[in-house]
């Protein structure tokens, strides 16, 4: 037994230090989990003879904390729109100028000069989507294009609703519902938000992620959630429908940025350019089930995604969506207090 352990551990020890790589170059991508199409990576690796390593994170805060600490060894990161300015202000991103890259011409107009990255000097679009409501229409037949479903649940849905544990997204959606700004220190407004959430919570079943499975399996009848996940759930449960709250809903976009202390800057820039090509962007969308912001990529996507209501909003509701910035520290503190109060 002892000898067995000794041999095994020696083998493990050696194996953990070897890092053979046959490619010319390397690229370390730090991205959200389950978000990177393996096909896309394989294509990039073959095209440029670069070996790509993917590492996952699960929240903007974790990614920011890890990169800010330094010594991380990553080249590319995929922050959400509301975090991009924080990354820029902290000096963590390289001004890689995607706007001057060859494939920039494919970027859709609405995303070529976004507020969070004026002129696209830092980031190339990855995926975008919305934060609306997924509803099982076999249980509730009323209007689903409203966040009232979650904040003042109808009888049929009471006790069957989920709200994800996303402090900012939930409070901001509540603010939009009440007609406020997404970042506000208006105390009257915040008090209304708190009272509304505290009153609604007993009618919620859970505050959890994993709705792709639970909406799909009819464990949950409605949830505030992200569009692509509801699209996935709909493949299991055809009764599902995704609503875009007419009172206002949040849009998000994750974009690829090169890190200021990246080791493989050239490869990282190649990657930014690579993902702006329509057929490559389509690979990303096909894998993750979200829209990508690249003109002409739809034709490379599977049929059930083309024009799907869950992927892009219908015209009359598209105007209600808005991108939000990261709120100031003081406002975040108030939001945290409300959130703690809600979950105490």
């Amino acid at each position: 037994m002892n000898r067995f352990l000794a041999i095994a551990s020696t083998a493990f020890f050696i194996s953990s230090f070897g890092n053979p790589s046959l490619a010319d170059g390397e690229l370390n991508l730090f991205n959200w989990g389950d978000y990177t199409s393996p096909e896309l990576i394989e294509k990039f690796e073959n095209q440029y003879n670069v070996s790509v390593t993917i590492t996952d994170y699960d929240s903007n805060a974790t990614a920011l904390a890890k990169i800010k600490a330094g010594g991380h060894g990553f080249d590319l990161v995929v922050p959400s729109a509301n975090y991009v300015q924080i990354w820029v202000q902290e000096g963590l991103l390289l001004e890689s100028r995607p706007d001057q890259m060859e494939n920039f011409k494919y970027v859709k107009k609405q995303f070529s000069d976004p507020v969070w990255d004026p002129g696209r000097r830092y980031t190339a679009p990855w995926l975008w989507g919305s934060f609306g409501v997924g509803v099982d229409t076999s249980i509730y037949g009323g209007n689903i294009n409203t966040s009232e479903i979650v904040f003042y649940p109808p009888e049929e849905l009471s006790g069957k609703i989920n709200v994800p544990p996303e402090m900012n997204d939930v409070i901001k959606t509540a603010l939009l519902y009440l007609g406020g700004d997404t970042c506000t220190d208006d105390k009257e407004m915040l008090r209304k938000v708190r009272d509304m959430l505290v009153e609604a919570k007993p009618k919620w079943l859970s505050m959890d992620y994993g709705m792709t499975e639970k909406l799909g399996a009819k464990d949950v009848a409605a949830s505030l959630y992200w569009n692509g996940a509801v699209f996935r759930a709909k493949q299991e449960n055809p009764d599902l429908s995704y609503g875009y709250p007419q009172e206002g809903y949040l849009l998000w976009m994750d974009s690829v940025a090169v890190l200021a202390d990246a080791k493989n800057i050239e490869n990282a820039k190649l990657f930014q350019n690579f993902i702006m090509a329509p057929e490559n962007a389509a690979l990303i969308s096909t894998f993750a089930k979200y829209a990508n912001g690249i003109e002409g990529s739809e034709e490379f996507m599977p049929d059930n995604m083309k024009g799907a209501l869950e992927i892009e909003a219908p015209e009359e509701l598209a105007g209600s969506g808005q991108f939000s910035e990261a709120c100031s520290p003081d406002i975040t503190k108030m939001y945290t207090a409300i959130w703690t109060e809600l979950q105490k």
Binding site: S59, A61, P165, M167, S206, G210, K333, T340, Q343
Partner: peptide, 25 residues
């Protein structure tokens, strides 16, 4: 607590995690 409790009520671990994550405190 997060998965089985449905995350509706925090425990100490979740409270602390909130401060290091979304709460930025």
């Amino acid at each position: 607590p997060r998965v089985l409790g449905g995350g509706r009520n925090l425990m100490i671990g979740n409270l602390i995690e909130l401060q290091f994550g979304q709460g930025s405190n």
